[in-house]
């Protein structure tokens, strides 16, 4: 119940700050563009948009959200209530992933005929959105302001995006398989073209492992660098 309330409040907050309008607008814009692309290139671009926009949605916004709450001393009041840190983090992740998935559902409509494995697409995306939101929380916990967050997020985000090179057939190395984003791209591709079961299983395990690690680190960093500072302990 507490968790549901927290999610509800987060969604209301995001709605009030225009996230839903902005994403509705952007998703529809993407839709118009994708419908005007040729059949052959449409899938590639759609999956690319899902990767760089949808999965990174939480990564983009979470920094500013946490820094705002920190700056307005909201966290101090929040954590004297029975709300637990884990619930706070889960609410952030769930609320942002709802927005991301809604936007994803709009963006995939132009290629819905070519999708052969919808559950893989959905779960792959969802796990990736969760990963990037947690990743953002880790960075945000140690950032001074939005530009500071940007700088760190840009650097780490670029490293995370390296497997795009393999997706675009520029360069590939087995090392990419260590990164969660390689798994994301495998699952996105598996949605539109036949992929070996082993690859799909690897991708899900890879994302789950990274998500657990990110969740653990997000909790720890938040506890150490944010909570201790608020005096709410």
């Amino acid at each position: 119940m507490r968790l549901l309330n927290a999610i509800h409040i987060d969604i209301t907050f995001q709605f009030r700050h225009g996230f839903y309008y902005v994403y509705l607008f952007i998703s529809v814009l993407y839709l118009l563009i994708l419908f005007n692309l040729q059949q052959g290139i449409r899938e590639t671009i759609t999956l690319l948009l899902l990767f760089i926009d949808t999965t990174m949605l939480g990564f983009f916004f979470i920094g500013a959200i946490v820094l705002l709450e920190k700056g307005q001393n909201i966290l101090q009041s929040l954590f004297v209530t029975p709300l637990r840190l884990s619930e706070y983090i889960i609410a952030k992740v769930i609320s942002l992933s709802i927005l991301a998935m809604a936007s994803a559902l709009i963006i995939v409509t132009p290629i819905h005929l070519s999708i052969i494995n919808f559950p893989v697409l959905l779960f792959g995306l969802w796990l990736s959105v969760i990963f990037f939101t947690l990743f953002g929380l880790i960075i945000a916990a140690r950032s001074q302001n939005v530009n500071d967050y940007f700088a760190k997020a840009l650097g780490l985000g670029l490293v995370a995006s390296l497997p795009l090179a393999q997706y675009l057939h520029i360069f590939s190395t087995p090392l990419f398989y260590v990164l969660p984003t390689r798994a994301t791209l495998i699952l996105l591709e598996a949605a539109v073209k036949p992929t070996g079961l082993l690859h799909i299983i690897y991708a899900f395990i890879c994302l789950l492992v990274w998500n657990s690690l990110a969740a653990f680190l997000a909790y720890r960093y938040f506890y150490r660098h944010v909570l201790v500072g608020t005096g709410a302990l």
């Binding site: 907050f13 225009g18 902005v22 952007i26 563009i33 983009f60 939005v146």
Partner: peptide, 19 residues
């Protein structure tokens, strides 16, 4: 933007100029 969070939303919107 009233605050940084809205700033992000407007920043995202400004990205449309890239199109």
């Amino acid at each position: 933007a009233e605050n940084k969070v809205e700033g992000m939303a407007f920043g995202k919107l400004a990205g449309i100029m890239f199109l």
